[in-house]
């Protein structure tokens, strides 16, 4: 995990409700604190979609254009619309024609109605942001952090280019998608952080997703298990509690016991099935403290050899 701050793109992926956005925000802050110029992004299909990452980073009105959050850290929405517009501007000889095209009802409706063209727009916008340079020729952003939507997870984004390449066999879309695919598959430039919870089903899904990502050659940087509960009991103490044979559905306190067991099993299963230990983020009950604690944990993990 030490070299994760050296990637150009970090995809943060996972099912809904696992704390993916918290991890993306804390990771962005940690990389910025380590001296990287970071652009934190989240995918927004519609202009009025909720923007949880922007909320966490304190950006009131997130837009397609990067906005400064703090030293080294900026934030932008990743929208298909921005991708389509930049794409048309790059592909067409005149900017006017691109703007006219985006105003054409037929083209706009086509771009909205056709499946996967939205993802193509996202991919194009991603490349576009990665390639931006400053006046001295260096990249404007060293690292692009992408908080992926729960369904358009890393696997979905990896499938889109190969599907598009089947339909479109030449031209600028073909070139852009090929570049995007090459970048996403390069372990030196791209890393995926899979976020999951220490519960049976999310763990199975994360293992499945890790394997799916591998079949699409998208590099996995690490599995982050979030909200791991603290187990207060020594084995001897636990034996005493188990001897009470409390009904976990009906007894206060006992409802937590099976959860502690599932967490232990989940961590062991990830390590044995994927051959590497997961990164553990402890459960924090006080909502106000979550971000600072996750930030500290990620900084520590990235600093570890």
């Amino acid at each position: 995990m030490k070299d994760i701050f050296d990637k150009r793109t970090v995809l943060v992926s996972g099912k809904g409700g696992v704390g993916k956005t918290t991890v993306a925000a804390a990771f962005s802050r940690a990389a910025a604190a380590a001296g990287k110029r970071v652009l934190a992004t989240e995918v927004a299909y519609e202009t009025d979609s909720p923007t949880p990452l922007a909320d966490l980073l304190g950006v009131k009105h997130a837009t397609d254009d990067p906005q400064r959050v703090s030293d080294n850290l900026s934030m932008a929405l990743l929208t298909p619309h921005a991708g389509h517009l930049h794409f048309l501007r790059d592909a067409l000889p005149m900017r006017m024609l691109a703007d006219a095209a985006m105003k054409s009802a037929a083209i706009r409706r086509f771009l909205l109605a056709a499946p996967s063209l939205a993802e193509m727009g996202l991919l194009y916008r991603m490349l576009n942001l990665l390639r931006r340079t400053r006046s001295d020729g260096s990249f404007e952003f060293d690292v692009l952090v992408i908080d992926l939507p729960a369904t358009g997870h890393a696997l979905g984004l990896a499938q889109v280019p190969s599907a598009i390449l089947k339909v479109i066999t030449r031209g600028p879309v073909y070139d852009a998608v090929k570049d995007g695919l090459a970048m996403m598959r390069d372990p030196l430039r791209t890393g995926t952080l899979l976020v999951t919870l220490p519960e049976t089903l999310p763990t199975s899904e994360a293992i499945e997703l890790a394997r799916g990502i591998a079949t699409h050659h998208v590099p996995l940087a690490g599995i982050v298990v979030n909200r791991v509960p603290h187990n207060p009991f020594s084995p001897a103490e636990r034996a005493v509690v188990d001897a009470l044979a409390l009904d976990p559905q009906r007894t206060l306190g006992a409802r937590t016991l099976p959860r502690l067991d599932r967490a232990r099993e989940s961590l062991a299963r990830i390590e044995s099935e994927l051959g590497r230990p997961p990164m553990i983020l402890p459960e924090i009950i006080d909502e106000a403290q979550v971000e600072a604690r996750v930030f500290a944990a990620i900084t520590a993990l990235a600093g570890a050899a």
Binding site: A239, V240, L244, R250, T251, L252
Partner: peptide
């Protein structure tokens, strides 16, 4: 239907007090 844990039947071991 939730009740506090009934600890009356706990076995007596050196760890009982801290476990409960």
């Amino acid at each position: 239907g939730l009740t506090p844990p009934d600890t009356a039947g706990a076995p007596q071991t050196p760890d009982t007090a801290s476990a409960l």
